[in-house]
Amino acid sequence: MVVRLAERDISTGSNELYVPLPCAGSTPAWGGAGTCSLAITIDLVSDWGLVLDQPHSPVVDLVGRCDEAGIDAMLDLAMIVNAGAFGNVFRQP
C-alpha cells in the first residue's frame, strides 16, 4: 500500500494508523469545523476504512481485497470520495 500511495504522491509515516489524503478543490469540508482531511486506514479485524484526520473519528467501512488489485481499487474509491463525488459520507441522515 505504501508503494501505491507513493505512486500517487501521497506520503505515509511509520507512526500513523491512517494516511490523510490531500485536499482537492472539490473536497467536502470534513469534520465539525470543516478543517479535517479524509484519511484511509486498514484494520486487521475490520478491513479498509475511511476516517477523518482527527481523534475518535467515525469510520466508513470498506470491504476489499488486500492484493495489488484490491489496493488500487480501494485507493481509487478513496480518491473519488475525497474529491466529493458522494458529498460528505460522514453526515448522518
Rank of each mutant, 00 (worst) to 15 (best):
F86K: 15
L38E: 01
L5F: 03
D76G: 04
A85C: 08
A24K: 13
G64T: 00
L17W: 08
A6K: 11
L50R: 06
S26C: 03
V89M: 02
A73K: 01
A69S: 15
D9V: 00
T35Q: 09
A83R: 15
G32E: 12
R4G: 06
P28A: 07
V19R: 00
A29G: 09
D53N: 15
I80V: 14
M74C: 03
G64C: 00
L52Q: 13
A78N: 08
W48N: 01
A73G: 10
S46R: 10
G70T: 05
A24Q: 11
V51P: 11
A6H: 13
A6L: 08
A69K: 15
G70I: 00
V45I: 06
N88G: 03
S26L: 04
T35S: 07
S14L: 13
P28I: 00
R8V: 01
I71E: 13
I40K: 03
G70H: 02
D53H: 11
L62S: 00
P20Y: 05
N88T: 08
M79I: 10
T12N: 06
L21D: 07
I40Y: 05
A39F: 03
T41D: 11
P22N: 05
V60I: 15
N88V: 07
D61G: 10
A73R: 07
A33M: 13
D61A: 15
V59D: 08
V60L: 11
S57D: 07
L52K: 08
A85L: 13
W30F: 10
L77I: 04
A33E: 12
V81Y: 04
A78Q: 01
G49K: 10
V89S: 06
L17N: 02
L38H: 07
L38Y: 02
R8Y: 07
S11M: 02
V63Q: 09
S57C: 03
G32A: 05
E16T: 10
S57V: 02
T41Y: 15
